[in-house]
């Protein structure tokens, strides 16, 4: 009999239970979203009617539109900012205040989000900024930056400067080096970072809830409102749609990161 000293008896079972626990809530939500009954936990039959109800709910569609608008703009701004910062911090020579700049770029990760939310709320009220969408975009851009930054930095750090030096050696100007060598090679990292930033923005509740005013309700804030009114099958349907979208995005992002890692 082969004996593997690395194996621990019972560990497999524990891991199985763990994954069960990890996916149970998601499975429950998805399962009950197909429940025909009004009451969430009374199963009376299969139905898609709650999806119909969800998709024809104009408040929900508005919330999705707000979330998408904010997330897309914040992701674009955050990714661009993060890309530039990563290029300087990883590739730049003799950068002044390099460590301090790294801390500043990652600041949102070092602070509890509720503090950030309170801070921007007070700021916007003080400077009299009333455009709800603009407030959301500004705040989301800030907290998305580190999520975009970290994968890009990891990718850049994992890439030998030899490629860029070889390009310079072959008469490429700095801009050509960036466009033809650096950018194509770190693109998986940029994609992963953008994806992460997008999901973080779409997912955000604390800041968006604090800034929510009038017509600018994001999806999580809208869902929060629904939850407070009680659990409904329609809520399950909405949640299932969100789960499906997140899993799709996650799969794309993770496969990009893994493929990137495999190559280098």
């Amino acid at each position: 009999m082969r004996q593997d000293v690395r194996r621990y008896p019972g560990l497999g079972l524990l891991v199985l239970l763990f994954f069960g626990w990890l996916y149970l809530p998601i499975a429950v939500v998805i399962g009950f979203s197909f429940n025909e009954n009004r009451l969430v936990s009374v199963w009376t039959g299969f139905s898609l009617k709650w999806y119909g109800a969800a998709l024809s709910n104009s408040a929900l569609v508005d919330a999705v539109r707000t979330s998408l608008t904010v997330a897309l703009i914040a992701t674009a701004l955050a990714t661009l900012t993060a890309l530039m910062a990563a290029l300087v911090l990883v590739r730049g020579r003799d950068v002044r205040a390099r460590r301090l700049s790294e801390v500043v770029v990652n600041l949102p990760l070092l602070l509890p989000e509720i503090v950030v939310a309170v801070a921007v709320l007070i700021l916007f009220s003080q400077i009299g900024l009333t455009n709800g969408l603009l407030k959301l975009i500004l705040a989301h851009t800030a907290f998305c930056i580190p999520f975009a930054f970290l994968p890009i930095r990891a990718r850049l750090q994992g890439m030998t400067p030899d490629f860029e030096e070889a390009a310079q050696d072959l008469y490429a100007s700095p801009w050509v080096v960036f466009r033809r060598v650096t950018l194509p090679l770190i693109l998986p990292g940029v994609f992963a970072g953008a994806m992460l930033a997008f999901v973080m923005s779409m997912d955000d509740f604390i800041t968006s809830n604090m800034l929510a005013s009038g017509g600018n309700t994001t999806l999580p804030v809208y869902i929060f409102g629904l939850i407070k009114q009680g659990t409904t099958p329609e809520l399950n349907a909405i949640s299932t749609l969100i789960i499906a979208a997140s899993l799709l995005l996650a799969t794309i992002a993770l496969s990009l990161t893994f493929r990137g890692r495999g190559k280098s």
Partner: peptide, 16 residues
């Protein structure tokens, strides 16, 4: 480097 008419064969080759 990009204005010097010299070329390098890198130790790692650095093929793109």
């Amino acid at each position: 480097p990009h204005k010097r008419r010299v070329n390098t064969v890198f130790q790692s080759y650095a093929l793109f």
